[in-house]
Amino acid sequence: MAEIVSRQAAKVAAGTKMSPNEAYGRKRVVVITSPAAHALAQNDTVASPVLLPVGTRFTCNSFVSCAAMGAGVTLDVGIRDANGVAIDADGIAAAVDVAAAGRSALNNGALVAAGAEYVTTVPCYVYATFGGANPTDNAQFRIEVEVVTAD
Rank of each mutant, 00 (worst) to 15 (best):
M1I: 14
E3Q: 14
V5G: 03
S6P: 10
S6H: 04
A10Y: 10
K11Q: 14
V12D: 06
V12R: 01
A14I: 07
T16W: 10
K17D: 13
P20M: 07
N21K: 00
Y24R: 15
R26L: 09
R26N: 09
R26I: 11
V31L: 07
T33N: 01
A37F: 05
A37C: 05
A39P: 01
A39G: 15
L40D: 02
L40F: 15
A41C: 07
N43G: 07
N43A: 13
N43Q: 14
T45V: 13
T45P: 05
A47I: 12
A47H: 04
G55Q: 04
T56V: 06
T56Y: 01
R57S: 02
T59C: 01
S62G: 03
F63E: 11
S65L: 05
S65G: 10
A67S: 08
A71R: 01
A71P: 00
G72L: 08
V77C: 08
G78V: 07
I79M: 12
G84Y: 06
G84F: 05
V85L: 11
D88S: 10
G91Q: 01
A94L: 02
V96Q: 00
V96H: 00
D97N: 11
A101T: 06
A101Y: 05
G102F: 03
S104A: 15
G109R: 01
G115W: 09
A116L: 12
A116K: 14
A116S: 15
V119L: 07
T120R: 00
T121A: 13
T121F: 09
V122E: 10
P123W: 02
C124A: 15
C124R: 04
Y125K: 00
V126G: 07
F130C: 05
G131W: 12
G131L: 11
G132L: 11
N134K: 04
N138A: 09
A139M: 12
Q140C: 02
F141S: 04
I143N: 00
E144T: 14
E144M: 08
E144F: 01
V145W: 06
V145T: 02
V148G: 01
A150D: 13
A150V: 08
A150L: 07
